[in-house]
Computed example of a mutant assay.
Amino acid sequence: LRIAGVMLLAMCGVLLMLWNPQLEQPWPQGIADWLALSAGMAFALNNLMIRKLRYEPILLKTQVTWAGCILVAGFAVLIRTEALPQVDVEVIGWAILLGIFGFAMSNLTLQYGVTHMRAQRSAVILLFELVVGGVSAALIAGEILSFREVIGGAIIVIAGYLVTLSMADDEEKNEQT
């Protein structure tokens, strides 16, 4: 029950960060929003599958994730209605290096972490991605963080802390019995 409450608190922080008061309804407004929503759902499903297959080798799970990304990206390229942009070879090279090293390292660490953590804990910790994304957008892209976004991020961090406290209490009780 405590974990459910903390998850609800974290989701309230997420909703606060993502809420756009100008919208009349909370539905995605365009193709980018729908793609972002589907990516989030795929990410969550990926984490559940990692957890379900926790006894399988991490390298196997990483390879399957890469294959899935390649298949989905290939399908997305095939169904595009607009032409692909012209890109310099140097940009393609940097993108490949980023994919190989950036995606590979993040995926391997994700696989390890999700495999070795309880699902509730990893779910709350992974919500911290929203905080990192918001701060990165401010620092790198010069976007302005609103008070609402800062408070939402703080709620997510607090939820992560509370789930850690709750799990420490549970572990302490188990050790005493």
Rank of each mutant, 00 (worst) to 15 (best):
A67Y: 08
P21T: 06
L97T: 05
T177W: 10
E172V: 11
Q86S: 12
K173N: 10
E82L: 08
W34T: 09
V163R: 00
E56C: 09
I3C: 03
V132F: 14
N47Y: 00
I70R: 01
W34A: 12
Y55R: 05
Y112K: 12
A95M: 10
V135N: 07
V114H: 07
E149I: 06
E175F: 10
R148M: 01
Q176L: 13
N174Q: 12
T115W: 02
L108M: 14
G152P: 08
R51K: 15
E129V: 09
E172L: 15
M49T: 13
G133P: 10
T81C: 06
V89A: 13
I92T: 09
V77L: 15
A73C: 10
S38E: 05
I79E: 03
L165C: 11
Q63M: 13
W27A: 13
I156P: 02
I151H: 02
E24D: 12
T177K: 12
K61L: 14
A67G: 06
E82H: 14
S106V: 11
A32C: 01
I155Y: 01
R80I: 02
M167V: 12
N47T: 05
P28L: 06
T65P: 00
N47M: 03
Y55A: 08
L48K: 09
E171A: 12
M7G: 03
I31W: 12
A32S: 04
S38L: 15
G5P: 01
A154G: 12
L37E: 07
A119K: 04
A10L: 03
G142P: 02
S122R: 02
E129S: 10
A119Q: 10
L108Y: 10
Q176R: 11
R121N: 01
I156Y: 04
A44N: 05
S122L: 05
G93D: 08
V131E: 00
L59G: 04
I3E: 13
L35N: 04
K173I: 13
A10D: 03
N107F: 04
L15M: 11
L110E: 00
G134S: 15
E175P: 02
Q63T: 05
Y112M: 06
A159I: 07
Y112G: 01
E56N: 11
A123Q: 11
A159F: 04
M105A: 14
L127K: 08
